[in-house]
Nucleic acid binder design. Sequence first.
DNA 1: AAGTCGGGGAA
DNA 2: TTCCCAGACTT
Length: 365
Amino acid sequence: MDPPALPADPARLRRRLLLWYDANRRDLPWRAPPGGRADPYAVLVSEVMLQQTTVATVRPRFLAFVRRFPTLEALADAPLDDVLHEWQGLGYYRRARALHGLARTVRDGGGALPATVAGLEALPGVGPYTAAAIAAMAFGVPTVPVDGNVARVLARLARVETPLPAAWPVLRRLAADLAGAGAGEGAGDGRWGDLAQAAIELGALVCRPAPACGGCPWREVCEARAAGVEAALPRKAARAAKPRRYAVAFLVRRDDGALLLRRRPETGLLAGLVELPTTPWQEGPFRDEGAILAGAPEALDLRPLPGEVRHGFTHLDLTLGLWTGAGHEAGDGFFWRQDRLGELALPTLTRKLLRLGGITPGARP
DNA sequence: AAGTCGGGGAA
DNA sequence: TTCCCAGACTT
């Protein structure tokens, strides 16, 4: 089969897409008003938050984040723990660390975000997608960022049958073709930020995994639709099954009501966040009390609470029981916390366990 | 190229 | 349940 190519002139595709976007765009807090200019810091924060995270989740968290850290300089001046606290529950906590590091890098380098794809991609936490997105949306660079939405749109438009992830280079080339000059460039060109938003928006609203072609501005030229294969694209390589792991967490209280906690290591899963003590995670369920007590912190009268917590990570599913007891000494790596749990950066897994134990740490930001 | 890194909502 | 989300980084 011929190598995939855009089925129509790029300038014509761009015009059709922008007309659709003008009539169908969502009003999102980080977006420039129609005809206006987006705030680079807002674009940066939103794009990092939106990495593998839905708009519905990000919208309120974005508003809270920029309220607490209104400028790149304010973010650079804040302690990392404050940033992690503001990020709790969002997942992929490396993003928060990278964003904080990025802010300090930029502040120490003069204070302005780079305005080029290459300059942006050199910053921590900014990869090919995010660099292109910021360049287009905040600085008007003529480039079309390829995220999961745009990959789906382009794979269908040009009928790319190669499965992901092998198809990524093909899709990036198609995106570059779309951003290229094309014959008779005209109305709409110059709106490169809107074009980037529009390509993503089309994937999010119309060219979804279950496509709604009736509302698509490209339906008449879409090659997947012409062949009747739109719902099957993009094809994807089979993924490995997620293993399940088991552990028991411990709700240990001191006489004064303080709770025994520990901080996770600075790298790896849930890096630097605060959690309840647990046994090591193991491949099968715990069968006898001895194995549980062997993994427990020093405590008296340990006994199981009814119920369990299930929590899914990206590459494994975890099932935890919860035991409770009384203690008075915090061993190495542990600490007591009496109140104001809401001020700690707690992962969702820990919140689920606390809820099972009848504790509400307070609303997260 | 493959593995690591969260959590939630929709189908 | 499974999929997938405005992906990046490490090895």
